[in-house]
């Protein structure tokens, strides 16, 4: 229960950064932290106490495996996170070239 709660706290830290910070790089950092929290929650959800990793080994019968399905989903999610980060950084750099600032309130002011 405490572990789930800590994942929620991590997600809230990322949410605070997204909502409060004005620098675009800080907002990207908040998105990255939210991703971490979601991946972590998926893996914690599938953990079995004293389990073993979901890989068969020769001449051994393994019965107490951790849940492999959330791991397969989180693997996809991690790779998507990198693509999202690259796209966000590209957009941020374009914004910097156009307005020469990272501050989102200044961008709004320039638009009129």
């Amino acid at each position: 229960m405490l572990t789930y709660l800590l994942c929620l706290v991590l997600f809230c830290v990322g949410l605070y950064a997204i909502l409060r910070k004005r620098n675009i790089i800080k907002i990207i950092i908040g998105v990255v932290i939210c991703e971490y929290a979601v991946n972590l929650f998926l893996i914690v959800f599938g953990y079995r106490a004293n389990g073993r990793s979901p890989i068969y080994s020769q001449d051994q019968k393994i019965i107490d495996m951790v849940d492999p399905l959330p791991q397969a989903c989180a693997m996809t999610s991690i790779v998507m996170g990198l693509a999202i980060t690259a796209l966000l950084v590209a957009i941020a750099i374009r914004i910097y070239e156009k307005y020469s600032t990272f501050d989102i309130t200044k961008i709004r002011k320039l638009k009129g």
């Binding site: 790089i25 953990y47 791991q71 990198l82």
Partner: peptide, 26 residues
Amino acid sequence: TLKAPDLAITQLVVEILCLIILIRAT
């Protein structure tokens, strides 16, 4: 620690790439 070695490898490599992109951006 949570018995997910595949994810650990992927997270390590992705983190390095993500860090390089973010550092060069800032």
